[in-house]
Simulated assay, not measured.
Amino acid sequence: MRFDVYTPLLVSLLLPLVSPVMGRRMAPGPATRVLASAAVATAVATTWSLLLLAATLVGAAPPLVREAQEDGHPRAVPVPEVVGIAASVALAVVVYRVYRVVRAERGTRRALRRLCQGHPADTELIVAASDVPQAFAIPGRPGRILVTSAMLGALRPAERRVLLAHERAHLTYRHGALVSAATLAVAANPLLGPVRDAVAFLAERGADEQAADEVGDRGTTARALARAALTTGGARRVCALNFMDRAVTRRIAALQTSPPAHLRSAALAVLALGALPALGAADATRDLLVLLTGGSA
């Protein structure tokens, strides 16, 4: 209990260090899924560890202590009381942060659904008359692609194909769900912020690679990104998965090189790292139950 309960915190420090390496050396599609899964597992384990630390205050309750003394069982102290109090406060903060993120996500989804109102259910592409160049995927059943007339007017025909293939890849591979999961993980564990940024960037990179494969020309894909970036300028982002979001310069540079490799060993290593906090939390749970019942580990 004394050490295992802190394992998720340790992994929370290591995972942000690993995520940039994953982004550079591994194919973005698998890397997105692996990092999002590891972030969620770590956040859940961290929250559970806080709950375990807060639960140690129960062991210090006078009725339990008195009962243990009457039964002749020594009452071990898992962690100092101040740690339990701090964990209780942190747990309350986590609940509030997660609530705010869930509320914001629901608000965003409602706003996106309103944009699709009035269009047939089988319509994938929605073109909005607007002077603001934007293009983004709207998850749902069915998924939609919303593009403004300004964005379409700024691109050449081949580049429009890149744009649509990019957004279609977001819908096909459920990048919105992966980014949302990583965002919830950060709400529960702020130390995972760099991992969430890496997941969002890799989602865009993965969509770029899929678009390049569909169009059959990495150069055209890079030019479409560059032209859209010049057109968009400082336009306000309205969606997490935006064609021109997430380090466009790095994405263009990546398209000018060979596609990254699928490193299964790296993926397995990160997944193992994500599983480590769950194992630590499980062992800490067992130790806490033993301590609170007056047994021995």
Rank of each mutant, 00 (worst) to 15 (best):
D122F: 02
P277C: 08
Y99W: 14
E105G: 01
P190C: 03
T7E: 04
Y96S: 07
L271F: 06
A226F: 02
L292T: 07
R103V: 06
T232I: 05
R227N: 10
Y96D: 07
G140P: 11
T108F: 06
V93H: 03
A150F: 07
R75F: 01
R205F: 05
H175G: 04
A224C: 02
A92I: 13
L52A: 10
F201G: 03
L230N: 08
A154M: 05
A240R: 14
D4F: 15
D4W: 15
D197H: 09
W48A: 15
A269T: 12
I85C: 00
R106M: 08
R109Y: 07
A185C: 09
H73E: 11
R218Y: 02
R100D: 11
G84W: 12
G234H: 12
L292M: 07
A31D: 02
A158M: 03
A228L: 08
A68E: 05
D217T: 03
L164H: 13
D213S: 06
L57G: 11
L273C: 03
D122I: 03
R25I: 08
V58D: 04
A247K: 13
A185Q: 09
A228T: 08
L191W: 14
D213Q: 14
A200I: 08
S37P: 00
A282I: 13
L255I: 05
A137R: 06
R264S: 07
E81Y: 12
A43P: 08
L291I: 15
P194G: 04
R246T: 09
C239Y: 04
A61R: 04
V83R: 05
I145H: 02
D131I: 04
P30V: 01
T123Q: 13
T42E: 05
F136S: 05
L14Q: 02
A111V: 00
L53S: 06
G274V: 13
R114T: 09
D131L: 06
R113Q: 14
R160D: 02
G294D: 07
S37H: 02
R237G: 07
A86Q: 04
Q134V: 11
A27D: 10
R286A: 14
G29F: 13
R160K: 06
T183A: 12
A269G: 13
L112E: 15
A31F: 01
G140V: 11
R250V: 09
A41N: 04
L52D: 06
V95N: 01
L152Q: 10
L164K: 09
G294F: 09
P80R: 03
G274D: 09
P277R: 10
R141N: 11
M22V: 03
G23N: 00
V83M: 12
P139Q: 04
Q69K: 10
I126S: 03
V11L: 06
T231S: 13
R160C: 06
V290M: 13
G219E: 14
L50A: 07
V5P: 00
A261R: 15
I252K: 01
A198T: 13
E204F: 00
T108N: 15
D283W: 11
A212V: 04
T46V: 04
G59V: 10
A187D: 06
I85L: 15
Q210V: 13
L10V: 15
A150T: 10
L263P: 00
L288S: 09
T232K: 09
V65Q: 12
A92W: 01
R205Y: 07
